[in-house]
Design a binder for these strands. Structure first.
Length: 307
DNA sequence: AACGAATCCAACCGCGCATGG
DNA sequence: GCCATGCGCGGTTGGATTCGT
């Protein structure tokens, strides 16, 4: 039952890394490159599990890491991206060169949360703390800095038992603007550590389901959920743009103006305005760690494709 | 100076996804 | 289609450090 352990724990070191271990790991990766983390420790002569090596490299040893305090610009960017993406630290990290998901996550929990609260903004919803948009009560435990409670759920469950019909319809409307992770293609293509798939699936129409298929899929999901959602909506906050994307994948430049105006209508995610007006495709904004823009996204009229 | 509280952050853990046999 | 495996992600932990009294 269950998966086999990632390594033989009895023979691995744990805890803080020594300088010697760091050097061994750096030397090995310098020669052989990243990857094959499972076999790396043995090959490099390290008594660590592969996961541990990977983490140490990604979060601490990578040469392109930027150390030191976050700038105000980085601060604001993190807040904006979090309002868009939620706790997708790796995606957010993809937009902050030299920063790791772990670093951003820690920074968020220790600094940014507090900053937002002091501004009267709910760090989870990015709405004013005293705003009552619905009578819904979230079951996510409100965590204060450094006092994270063990909530294994990655899904925000909302209880709508006491919600008014108007609130429920508002929520449904919002929900219809949100992709409930219904498109696996989109999800996997969002992985910043797989830029090739970003380009293949996001930046070209090939390899994607058609708009019609996506609508049907979405519709079926809606039907399945509809009998339950008055009481409890499973509001998966991970990615919020697939339906928008399907509308906005422009096939001609004439569609771009429509696309832009539609994007700007997505009121709950006003941050999109900024993404759009910056004139950079979301695939490059969010997905790719490469500094240059993906060529498939560029259009002759100066716009980029949005997803 | 001493002590407890608060904070920071590197590292660990467990789960989900992708992939290949 | 099923299963095993590897990797990556997000949540959490706990030791180290800083702060306040």
């Amino acid at each position: 039952m269950g998966r086999s352990p990632c390594c033989e724990k009895a023979h691995t070191n744990k805890g803080a890394w020594t300088k010697e271990e760091d050097e061994r790991l750096i030397d090995y990766i310098r020669v052989h490159g990243e990857g094959c983390w499972r076999s790396l420790p043995k090959a490099a002569g390290l008594l660590r599990c592969g996961k541990s090596c990977r983490l140490r490299w990604i979060n601490y040893l990578r040469p392109d890491l930027k150390r030191g305090n976050f700038t105000d610009e980085e601060d604001e960017l993190i807040i904006k991206l979090h309002s868009l993406l939620g706790n997708k630290w790796s995606v957010i990290a993809g937009r902050l060169p030299g920063r790791t998901d772990n670093e951003i996550k820690n920074y968020w929990n220790t600094h940014v949360k507090r900053k937002l609260i002091s501004r009267g903004i709910d760090p989870q919803t990015h709405r004013p703390l005293n705003e009552k948009t619905t009578t819904a009560t979230t079951t996510t435990t409100g965590t204060t800095t450094g006092a994270a409670k063990p909530t294994a759920n990655r899904v925000t469950q909302l209880n709508f038992e006491n919600a008014s019909p108007q609130s429920i319809s508002e929520i449904k409307l919002l929900k219809s603007n949100i992709d409930f992770k219904c498109s696996k293609n989109f999800n996997s293509s969002f992985n910043p550590r797989k830029p090739e798939s970003v380009e293949e699936t996001n930046c070209s129409s090939s390899g994607m389901t058609t708009d019609e298929e996506q609508h049907q899929h979405h519709h079926h999901q809606e039907e399945r959920k509809s009998s339950h959602e008055n009481k409890e909506i499973n509001l998966e906050l991970t990615i919020g743009l697939a339906p928008i994307r399907s509308e906005l994948t422009p096939t001609s430049s004439s569609n771009l103006a429509d696309a832009e105006s539609k994007l700007q209508q997505q009121a709950p995610y006003q941050i999109l305005e900024k993404v759009v007006t910056r004139g950079v495709c979301t695939c490059c904004q969010l997905g790719s760690q490469r500094s240059e823009l993906c060529s498939n996204c560029q259009n002759s009229n100066g716009f980029y494709r949005y997803y």
